[in-house]
Design a protein around this nucleic acid. Structure first.
Lengths: 155, 155
DNA sequence: CTTTGTGCAAAGATTTTGCATTGCG
DNA sequence: CGCAATGCAAAATCTTTGCACAAAG
């Protein structure tokens, strides 16, 4: 499992590199590192966090470059639409295998799950509205097993 | 149907008024009008749009007041921040019956839909994880009917 | 009347952009 | 080497805040 995950990441990196070059763009250390950081990140990430992480790796990078690179990645389809929480823009990888989230409102734990039923449901709904789906995000908020049994307060 | 909807709106306004006063805050024309505008708005709204609509009603209001009022409403649980698209924060009333969203990544249009199936699916998934659901958010991103037929570029 | 709310303008925060310089191809 | 990419700082947006005045209770 671990091996295949690393393999996937390597393949993704190659895919990204090819996509960048195909578009007539240049493959710079900044772009590579930003992409690596993204595929390493399990969940969501923010700009500021990204800038710091890249710099820790001793790759000089400016905020501007991160913004510009993320826009390119969006165009290329490697990261998804942004959401905003509390004045912070959050990006998410669109390449990893799709999953959704159970989010515990008490302890903040995020559980990932996959369900084929959702995909079917999505198609059903979209056809009703003549909507062409590209991807979705389902978040279920509530209490995780642990929090149900210890403490019922909800933030 | 229409009658009961108006009734609901009236009830909501009363509820809001009570909530504001209960919190020791004052019930001003601006606050009332902002709230009315929100419950009238079927879908989602943005700050700038809100400011203009209120002013058209000849109620003087500043952007600052709208921001401040929305924050109060958030605290009171009457509105939620939904998403951010292209630097614009979109709010939504949180009191209306539950629904989910189809979001067009090309024109930004938001279509609401309801599906009983999702509720069932939610219960099914949650029982697998011993998770106690409180509410969920499902967003399907893609292209709306219009954008599929006019132009395939995405931003 | 007292205290909170509003408007304005200035300050903050986040994202974009122009321009000189760097460096990929 | 030529042209795109980067970094910096300034500009553009969006949101919050301090202060004086207005107004709810």
């Amino acid at each position: 499992m671990k091996r295949s995950k690393n393999k996937t990441q390597k393949r993704l990196l190659e895919e990204f590199k090819r996509a960048v070059k195909n578009k007539g763009l240049r493959y710079t250390p900044q772009r590579e590192q930003i992409f690596k950081e993204i595929i390493t990140t399990k969940g969501h990430f923010e700009i500021e966090q990204m800038v710091h992480k890249i710099r820790e790796k001793n790759i000089p990078v400016s905020r501007a470059t991160v913004y510009r690179t993320l826009n390119i990645m969006k165009e290329l389809g490697f990261v998804e639409e942004v959401i905003k929480i509390k004045n912070k823009t959050i990006y998410e990888i669109s390449i990893k295998e799709h999953h959704d989230h159970l989010i515990c409102t008490s302890c903040g734990k995020i559980i990932e799950f996959q369900s084929q039923d959702i995909e079917k449901l999505q198609d059903k709904i979209c056809s009703q509205y003549k909507f062409l789906p590209k991807f979705h995000r389902l978040e279920i908020f509530g209490l995780c097993d642990t929090c149900q049994n210890t403490n019922h307060q909800q933030s």
